[in-house]
Design a protein around this nucleic acid. Structure first.
Lengths: 338, 338
DNA sequence: TTGAAAGCGCTAACAT
DNA sequence: ATGTTAGCGCTTTCAA
């Protein structure tokens, strides 16, 4: 800290009060437009405040605030990753709602790791947020306990398959996998492969695969071969995985990908190889990304209501109703690739 | 709030002190591992703390903290949008640094609007952050004044073309545009078009275009036709804009896009039309996204060090050196599309 | 090594 | 309608 800051005196509420020639509490009332005061004092105060460039200290405000109003106008958000487009979309959904509600969000990234998540949640809790929005239902026992003990609103978003804490907003990952399997079967594909990214960390991708496999097996079918790349999902990873899979099992007639990024990689590979899609091989993704739906042949995939989930999660957090589970569902997109 | 919370008593430092049979300040010292205390008390205190499930209240801690330690372990981040992949990448870069430094980040979205930005920054400032990372150099006069008066570290990231406040981490958008123009000219393209998204809001896209046009004109050339779509940038928008442009000016031999998303749309259109790239028409993007580089023909584009910018921005914010401008540069990728 | 006491900047009774 | 007085939960002198 050298560039500026010769120990800047930050303007406080007391400074404003002195400047306006009124008491502290009057300033507080005027600035929060709460309680009663004459029109004249209102003007004097707001004028003094802006003349001094007063910025209220929310830390102090929240600390002093009534013990009823649990927490501040801060909300904590925990997402597994910023790499995956899905999460920025969720944030975007919340953003609108929180903006109009006057909430600020503190964001933590768990990196798909329940232990890191525990640490991140502790850190967020120490800011005494009004509530927490977290991703998925898989948490450590300690996290679950601490969350319940916190007494604040907890929203778990994205997935609905499992035990929850307070409010859940999402859809069934397992069911999404099943629906994908049913679609491929109904189209007549029988030699089905899978290309996925590191699934030990992405629990929901694992659940989709589980639902997918279960549905195939219920009808006497199976995944004939699978290729798991060790990295996070990406177009490049999908392309490499698909290449490896098809080289090993060329008779495969349809591939289920862990998500659209991966599936786009597969599609690019088909383009390069000159393979007709879906004649030579059908492709099925997950997410319903813009990039995937705008391909020369729109991807067959499952579109998830990410913005909507974010919005609902934010609304439920700020509203304060009973605990509940909201299933937002998903849409199977019958694209041109499967 | 009904699900749980029959007015939960949140454990305070005083509770821990009572439980451990010591004074408040002792607990404070032990928990922050600062000052001196016997090994015995250390154990008693930390045991009591974990038995009670104590979560320190950072609001109170920061408020009480020394007036020297400007601000908390909170940093404010302002980005224009969450839609554009670029910004999550920047956040990701910061995330790692802040995690290890024990900082929490509060994020605000300005929606490419200087007036909204002003409001967002005020809101962030009210949490008394240790510093602020904001995007770009274009701010309202009021924002600039308030930022300077705040006395905290301010990092402006992404762009270096213009007047700054404290620390700048980025590259020259104008120069990126120029480099793109030079590349297309050196490859022999002469009938050059432009397809862009709403540029009145995205200042940096406008600067790139300005640099691009200036360089063409310096060498006696010009942009023969341009198509601006009114929406935000997306693959679909790029495709539509490119279609319109080529329908109107079919003789165009190269197109400069406002970014990779848009350029991918153009590429998809060529695929659908069966146009050979770059023979029929060359394409040039901006950003260097995974999606663009993994195309059957890797996109010719400019890759920007987004993670690195985020990292450096975060480091500069936490480190506290003199004001400075750090130019991280960019890489022109000689792909297969131009 | 430890405790007591004085705030940090604000809000919320309670007076007036 | 407005001022006065306690705190909110913590950190930090300053004594002991």
């Amino acid at each position: 800290m050298e560039g500026h800051s010769p120990r800047v005196h930050v303007v406080t509420l007391a400074d404003v009060a002195r400047e306006a020639g009124v008491g502290d509490s009057t300033v507080s009332r005027v600035l929060r437009n709460h309680g009663s005061f004459s029109k004249k004092t209102r003007d004097r105060v707001s004028e003094a405040a802006s003349r001094l460039g007063y910025v209220p200290n929310r830390l102090a405000g929240t600390l002093a605030g009534s013990p009823d109003s649990v927490g501040s106008r801060l909300v904590g958000i925990v997402i597994p990753s910023l790499t995956n487009v899905v999460f920025p979309d969720l944030l975007r959904g919340m953003s609108g709602v929180f903006d109009s509600a006057g909430f600020q969000s503190v964001i933590g990234v768990s990196d798909y790791d329940a232990v890191r998540e525990e640490a991140v949640i502790s850190a967020l809790l120490s800011w005494r947020p009004a509530g927490l929005i977290i991703t998925g239902l898989e948490h450590t026992a300690a996290t679950r306990t601490r969350l319940k003990a916190s007494g604040i609103r907890i929203v778990e978003m994205v997935d609905t398959d499992g035990p929850w804490i307070d409010i859940v907003v999402g859809f069934s990952s397992r069911e999404a996998g099943s629906a994908s399997a049913r679609h491929l079967l109904s189209r007549g594909y029988r030699r089905i492969g899978y290309v996925g990214h590191d699934i030990s960390r992405d629990v929901r991708a694992a659940k989709r695969l589980a639902g997918f496999v279960a549905t195939l097996e219920e009808t006497g079918h199976s995944v004939v071969d699978r290729e798991i790349v060790s990295n996070a999902s990406s177009v490049a990873a999908g392309r490499a995985g698909f290449d490896a899979l098809m080289a090993r099992s060329p008779k495969i007639d349809a591939v289920y990908f862990s998500n659209d990024d991966m599936a786009i990689g597969g599609y690019y590979h088909c383009l390069s190889r000159g393979w007709a899609v879906p004649r030579r091989v059908a492709l099925f993704g997950f997410n319903g990304l813009d990039m995937a739906m705008s391909l020369p042949q729109p991807m067959s995939t499952i579109a998830t209501p990410r913005l909507k989930m974010g919005q609902i999660a934010a609304e439920k957090l700020s509203a304060g109703g009973p605990s509940e589970t909201i299933d937002v569902g998903f849409d199977l997109i019958e694209g041109a690739t499967a």
